[in-house]
Design a protein around this nucleic acid. Structure first.
Length: 269
DNA sequence: ATGGTGGTCCTACCA
């Protein structure tokens, strides 16, 4: 079967439920991973997702900030909401699915802290939190995950790792999301269980790829000052299953858009 | 060097 998975920082799921419906009608992902849903569990629009065909839902909600949700047409085996850095912030959901007859497929949906403005952990607590978060997730995968099991990691990782993932490497070297220390920590996380960047499997460097364009940048398409902050990674057993990838840039131009575009990957499982 | 926009939920805080 082909498994289609989408990751999208929706920046308020209630405000943009109409955009989600539009996207789903056109692209019909089997698993939809949303970040920054900005709503607590009791107010999550579960019925709207059921109506879209997503009967299987895992929500890690929070009032006003953060929050992730993983919606699926494929039956859930189980799900787990985890807190990181001793903070009660909804930034991660793990879900498991019985697909393919072997080990259950594990999906990790992450919203990594943005990190504030100053790339200095001494003066900026938010940057320190981002660094700690990356360290903790790295250690968790290293110590309690098998790289030979089928796993997918998606989400808004808030880091654009390569010079081909930003509009200007030089002008962003000191801008949080593209500083060398963040890029190094993301590489360490990626090597924790040998995650493969599924997006770059389909569209290798040096082609530029962006998934986010700031609201503050006028004429975003013309100026194209984007960054690739959103990612889809797979473990080695799934590397050869990666078939197609699409960053739906046009969604950035929809009515009242998110500042992130959805990324969709097809896997032949 | 600065401020530019947008979401939440009413006051700043976060991105």
């Amino acid at each position: 079967m082909t498994l289609r998975i989408t990751t999208w920082n929706i920046n308020s799921v209630r405000l943009r439920i109409g955009l989600v419906e539009q996207f789903v009608a056109e692209h019909k992902p089997d698993i939809l991973c949303l970040q920054e849903i900005k709503v607590d569990d009791p107010l999550f629009p579960a019925d709207a997702f059921t109506a879209m065909g997503y009967e299987h839902q895992a929500v890690a909600g929070q009032k006003g900030y953060h929050g992730v949700a993983t919606l699926s047409r494929v039956p859930l085996v189980n799900s787990e909401r985890r807190n990181w850095c001793d903070k009660d912030e909804a930034r991660h959901l793990m879900t498991r699915y019985a697909i393919g007859g072997g080990e259950p497929l594990e999906v990790h949906n992450f919203y990594i802290p943005a990190g504030g403005d100053a790339p200095d952990p001494e003066e900026n607590d938010k940057f320190a939190h981002k660094m700690q978060f990356l360290d903790d997730v790295t250690n968790w995968f290293k110590t309690s995950h098998d790289p030979n099991h089928p796993k997918i990691l998606v989400g808004d990782l808030n880091i654009a790792p390569s010079e081909h993932d930003v509009w200007s490497h030089k002008q962003l070297l000191k801008v949080v999301s593209h500083t060398p220390v963040e890029v190094e920590k993301l590489a360490t996380l990626q090597s924790s269980i040998a995650w493969v960047d599924a997006v770059r499997e389909v569209v290798p460097e040096p082609e530029k790829l962006f998934s986010w364009w700031s609201y503050r940048s006028k004429n975003w398409r013309t100026n194209n000052r984007g960054r690739r902050l959103d990612h889809v990674w797979v473990t080695e057993p799934l590397k050869k299953s990666v078939r197609a990838m699409q960053i739906l840039e046009e969604a950035r131009d929809w009515e009242k858009p998110s500042d992130h575009a959805p990324i969709t990957v097809d896997l032949n499982i």
